[in-house]
Amino acid sequence: MTHAAATHHTSMGLDSRKIAFWAFIGSECLLFTSLISTYLVYKGRSVVGPSPHEILNIPFTSVSTFDLLMSSLMMVLALAAVQRGDMKWGKIWLFATALLGLVFLGGQVIEFTEFVHKGLTLQTNLFGCTFFVLTGTHGAHVTVGVLWLLTLWVRALQGKLGPGHALTVEITGLYWHFVDVVWIVIFTVVYLIQ
């Protein structure tokens, strides 16, 4: 069924793909910190409204946050299932992770649409510009993650993903969890600290 993928060990005994991916995550830290910094630096400097406290919906976003946290749990359960060769549950958890990611994206689409109807766009004020760029960039990352997860799920359905590809699932998980930790910071900095 599955063939163990070729390994790429370095002289440190670590897989080169995992090293490369952690380096990529490190660079993503810099990207998101620059966007968060921009948001914070321009916070409270908008000349016209709407302002954050007038428009942000904390109960709605709290549910989205819970959804993304649960998707991270699904992801680690998928990895654990693939590692022990239980592909039935591996497929279920992978699909559940992607589904929760889609729910999060749906929530973001609803939120953005509501904001636009209330008069907040990229061009309205500094808050709108920095908010949409920050959360939109995060949403784009979630979209990539969902596509990646669905690709893995389809490969698992085709029988092309097995315990021999555990590292592939682990790297996908690293990306997904990073997207989750970025949201943990955004939820606090943008939504709760107004």
Binding site: L14, G26, V76
Partner: peptide, 26 residues
């Protein structure tokens, strides 16, 4: 979830160094 607690310390360095730099810039 990202297994840094049990993975090689080198991964912690690859993540922690840019995070520290980014926090400093912020």
């Amino acid at each position: 979830y990202m297994h840094l607690k049990m993975d090689s310390p080198f991964f912690s360095f690859l993540f922690g160094a840019p995070l520290l730099l980014a926090t400093g810039v912020l």
